[in-house]
Design a protein around this nucleic acid. Structure first.
Lengths: 202, 202
DNA sequence: CACGATCTGTACCAAGCGGTAGACTGGCGC
DNA sequence: GCGCCAGTCTACCGCTTGGTACAGATCGTG
């Protein structure tokens, strides 16, 4: 594995997680196809053979970057679901999402969407990987809301799946907006409207 | 201009609007960068010199395709805003949008987003063009809602700009969902939830 | 029926793509 | 301090990219 440090031989001149973070930013900003190896290596501060020795291929690098993105950025929003009520969970999820999408420490928007919603036929796998990631997040929201339904925390007649889809769709739309320069306040104002309409508030 | 038929010389073997529609589909499905000239020419059924003679360059072809997309697909949704009330306008806009995003006669999703939310540094213009198109649509929604506010058709304290942003964001999120295979019914269920929450209904 | 104008098709261009061979570098164990 | 070996660096690979030169085809006109 690339994570264990070998006992012998010349040591690496870079930290794997550091350059992975920089690669993630490049993919985030330019998408999978838009982030060429030249863009990647200059962002990561290493050259091609080092990249290939450490990560295997551009696609494997992207998968590592996306996994790391999930473990850090997406995990924030998913963790926000852990609130006592469905309403509070949705609000926390949308707030955390809006904040993450407009965090000045990273490119605006969401890697899951910017990475490659549409791709060249050769890279169709990338779109699928990203879609699977978004579906997993939506499933987490739905799971939380299904629990709420069982607990009587959701008004009768509200479908947890449809509500989860609504919440995810809004979050994805905010990602598109953020990518086009919408401010954090803009997104929170949109969240306000969504929450007002949910009629989940006790 | 390429639209006027010349009196002399060999006539074109293709109809410009027909091949433009096919190019639009290719861009829609694969994005600007993902739709290579090989993909485009084989989808359009013409070869490169004909493409360049008729459209000038890949970017100009894309601009024509995007303009045509706006005139047909986006115009549908914008026309839906022409309803007697704000609530009816929003509902019609979201319904028309959901239908367009899942129309089986075209690729799933929205060219404005699939075209290239994130691009290679060289093609940054493309992202800007697409973002400008989305902003124009949002401005049309906001204009309709501002009129509603003047007419007393919007509850006090509702900001037309924020509401327009919410509506557009939801529609964009539905586009992302549609691109990942969400069904028309899925999207309409999400619209139902949004409408329930708007508290615009008299 | 030849001319001029325009379109089509093949075959090409330079540049960039993702990926790699091979010489060189430098820290550790003996 | 010498050998080992993983890492770095330069320079390259074949292939695709967006874009075009040029020859031949096909029309209207004189």
């Amino acid at each position: 594995m690339s994570t264990e440090t070998p006992a012998v031989g010349r040591p690496r001149a870079f930290d794997e997680e550091t350059v992975l973070d920089r690669a993630t930013e490049a993919f985030w900003r330019h998408g999978y196809e838009g982030a060429s190896l030249s863009v990647l290596t200059s962002a990561m501060g290493i050259n091609r053979p080092s990249l290939y020795a450490a990560f295997g291929s551009k696609e494997q690098l992207f998968q590592r970057a996306f996994a790391r993105y999930h473990d850090t950025q997406v995990a924030n929003a998913r963790a926000a679901l852990d609130q006592p009520t469905a309403y509070a969970s949705i609000e926390a999820f949308l707030r955390a999402s809006a904040d993450g999408l407009t965090d000045r420490d990273h490119p605006a928007g969401c890697l899951s969407i910017q990475g490659g919603l549409a791709c060249s036929p050769d890279n169709a796998r990338i779109s699928e990987i990203l879609a699977a990631g978004r579906a997993a997040t939506e499933a987490a929201v739905e799971e939380r809301l299904s629990r709420a339904a069982k607990e009587g925390d959701l008004p009768d007649g509200v479908d947890p799946g449809a509500l989860a889809r609504f919440v995810m769709a809004l979050s994805e739309g905010h990602a598109v907006h953020a990518a086009s320069g919408a401010s954090r306040e803009d997104l929170h104002a949109s969240v306000d409207i969504a929450l007002r309409a949910l009629a989940l508030r006790q």
